[in-house]
Simulated assay, not measured.
Amino acid sequence: MHAIGKIINKIKSLSIKHIVLAGTVKRTGVTKLLLDLKGAKLLTMIMKAGLNDDSILRTVIAFLESEGFAIIPPEKLATSIIVQSGLLTKTKPDPAAFADIKKGTEILKAVANFDVGQALVIQNGLVLGVEAAEGTDELIKRCGLIQQKDEEMCILIKICKPNQDKRIDLPCVGPETIKNLYRYNFKGVALEASSALILNKEETLAEADRLGIFIYGIS
């Protein structure tokens, strides 16, 4: 673990002026942070702005911009990773899956207004869980363990939060997400088209096809 000031200085020493952020954000306790002067500045900004996810992310962006960096959305550099509308895999959602996607998306949009999470798991019309501080992988595990074994298989749904800064923390999936879906007996994943990312796209789609998991872009 390095102090924030040392990280910033190292990046600047490499003449890096643009930063792209994508993937999982792991939470840690404040007591585990190494707070030099810049770290203390960032922590103060966070405490003033609030400790909900959106406030923290907006504050981190503001901090990096105050250090002279420009934050670039991942899709500006790799447009191919943006989720397109419709079916992206060989495996197709059946009518029951489409019904769950429709209902789950409506519920998740309502929940997302409260800055709770970007993901939800639904099974046969029943919401099994909403993403909280644990992240998507733990949500998949938690819901996979409580799903009804004789019902339709679970579906993961991921969308952007309303008014979210889309330069950072876009909902995304990758090969490990697909492996976890298969491990916990999920049918597939539905992602908000044009507002979600598929990391390592070719590998992710190939893994989904190999395991019989659908990936669907919600329009």
Rank of each mutant, 00 (worst) to 15 (best):
K90E: 10
E151V: 08
A96H: 11
G125D: 09
T79M: 10
K166V: 10
S85L: 03
I140K: 07
V127W: 08
I107G: 04
D100H: 00
P74F: 14
G135L: 05
Q164R: 11
E152Y: 07
A97N: 14
Q123G: 07
I155W: 03
L108Q: 03
K161Q: 12
V121M: 09
C160G: 04
V121I: 13
T105M: 04
P162V: 11
V111Q: 09
G86L: 13
D150R: 11
I155Q: 05
M153Q: 13
G86E: 10
L126S: 14
R167M: 09
V83T: 03
N124H: 13
N124P: 03
A96Q: 13
F114Y: 12
P93G: 11
G144M: 09
G104R: 02
G135V: 07
A132N: 08
P73D: 03
T89F: 08
L170T: 01
M153R: 15
E106G: 00
N113K: 15
D150E: 12
F114H: 12
E151C: 10
L139C: 07
A99E: 14
L170A: 00
D165Y: 07
F114R: 11
E151D: 12
C154F: 01
S80W: 06
D169W: 06
L170F: 01
L156T: 00
L120F: 02
K161P: 01
I159Q: 04
L139F: 03
A133L: 15
C172G: 07
I157S: 05
C143K: 08
Q148D: 08
I101N: 06
Q148H: 10
L126F: 14
E151Y: 14
K109W: 02
A112H: 12
E138P: 01
S80E: 15
T89M: 06
V116A: 02
K166N: 13
I122C: 00
L156M: 10
K109C: 03
I155H: 03
A99P: 03
N124E: 14
K166W: 05
I146S: 10
D165W: 05
C154A: 15
V121F: 07
D115S: 07
G104A: 05
K161I: 05
K76C: 02
G129D: 05
M153P: 05
D165R: 06
I159V: 14
